[in-house]
């Protein structure tokens, strides 16, 4: 009896160990440390990668579209001309992180991924989520820091994970160059000439994102003053009266309906941005220029913002910049007509 219990425990332990797949990759593997400090063993050249949320999907698309298993949200019809053909028909698999999982783990496993990547907020919740999914699905799960300032480093990190270091270097260099150009431009604009900006969302334009929110981050990065202050980081509602009181010089919107109707809405009249025609609709295809998702797509948003916020100081040909960015990051060649359709001029 005395010997029986340890023996039974030993047998049980052996059984459990045998049930664990011992890094079930056929080819060579590498071990990476992700943004949460977790050490994860992954295939050296993962061919089937699942992106956990929209920001990761956009980064994965830019770095290694041939490894995509699906979209978090399927692209809309109007997005398709701006996407590589091989990704256009990929299925919508749902999201794994953030508010409300819409992905069934069995669906995920049925897609036979080698690797799950996420690109976004790094905190205890997401670290724990990565651990849990990794345990439950027995798939390596790598989380990369999604903050704007860390973007060049994060692109390199993700490229290393995906086994496309060279392509990652090209994109990261572009990101570094974009930030450097933004800083150089800002150095020529005194603080007094920086516009007050209101970010309008929703058909009424009354949803916004405050300072420090990831949804409005690049407005501050481009040196403008976001008029909306808030303690929280999420979206907020305001009234037209509050916008009148803020008197923004520029309104950036991501809502087509609002951009079309703001000129006729009596409660928006008299606001400097409306009076001077400085209401700009951010392009959104295939990915938004301001956010949606907050990923590498914001790099071209920085250049677009520079032209809209500082028309006197910003130099360069925006159409050529856009065509160059879409060729490098999205792998699509846009002719002049496609660029003007995108920019809406």
């Amino acid at each position: 009896m005395k010997h029986l219990i340890p023996a039974a425990l030993k047998a049980a332990a052996l059984l459990v160990l045998a049930a664990l797949p011992a890094a079930a990759f056929d080819g060579p593997t590498q071990t990476v440390t992700d943004a949460t400090g977790r050490s994860v063993e992954i295939p050296a050249d993962p061919a089937r990668v699942f992106a956990a949320g929209p920001p990761a999907a956009t980064l994965l698309y830019a770095l290694k579209p041939q490894a995509m298993l699906g979209w978090v949200r399927a692209p809309k019809q109007a997005d398709l001309p701006y996407l590589l053909p091989l990704t256009q028909a990929l299925p919508e698999l749902g999201r794994l992180t953030g508010k409300g999982d819409t992905l069934n783990l069995e669906v995920l496993l049925a897609a036979r991924p080698d690797l799950i990547v996420d690109y976004g907020t790094v905190n205890a919740t997401y670290r724990d989520l990565a651990e849990r999914v990794q345990d439950q699905a027995q798939l390596p799960y790598v989380l990369i820091d999604g903050s704007l300032d860390a973007m060049p480093a994060s692109i390199r990190a993700m490229a290393g994970v995906l086994g496309v270091a060279e392509r990652g270097e090209a994109l990261a260099a572009y990101a570094e160059d974009s930030f450097a150009k933004a800083d150089a431009l800002l150095a020529t604009v005194p603080a007094a000439q920086r516009p007050k900006v209101y970010l309008a969302r929703g058909p009424e334009g009354l949803e916004t994102a405050g300072r420090g929110s990831i949804n409005a981050e690049i407005i501050e990065r481009m040196g403008a003053v976001n008029v909306a202050q808030s303690e929280g980081k999420g979206l907020l509602t305001v009234s037209a009266e509050q916008v009148q009181a803020w008197a923004p010089d520029v309104i950036i919107t991501i809502d087509r309906d609002f951009a079309a109707s703001v000129g006729n809405m009596p409660e928006w009249q008299g606001i400097p941005a409306v009076a001077q025609g400085r209401v700009y609709l951010a392009p959104s295809r295939p990915f938004g220029f301001i956010d949606s998702p907050p990923s590498v797509n914001r790099l071209i948003g920085l250049k677009w913002l520079a032209q809209k916020l500082y028309p006197a100081q910003a130099k360069g040909d925006l159409a050529a910049e856009v065509a160059g960015f879409y060729a490098l990051f999205y792998g699509v060649t846009l002719d002049d007509a496609a660029v003007s359709a995108l920019l809406g001029d």
Binding site: L235, T237, S292
Partner: peptide, 19 residues
């Protein structure tokens, strides 16, 4: 759409006269 419609829905369900 979680970026766009979901916040609008949430705000609507909380009630407001802002608009």
């Amino acid at each position: 759409d979680p970026d766009d419609q979901l916040p609008a829905i949430t705000f609507w369900l909380m009630g407001s006269l802002a608009g």
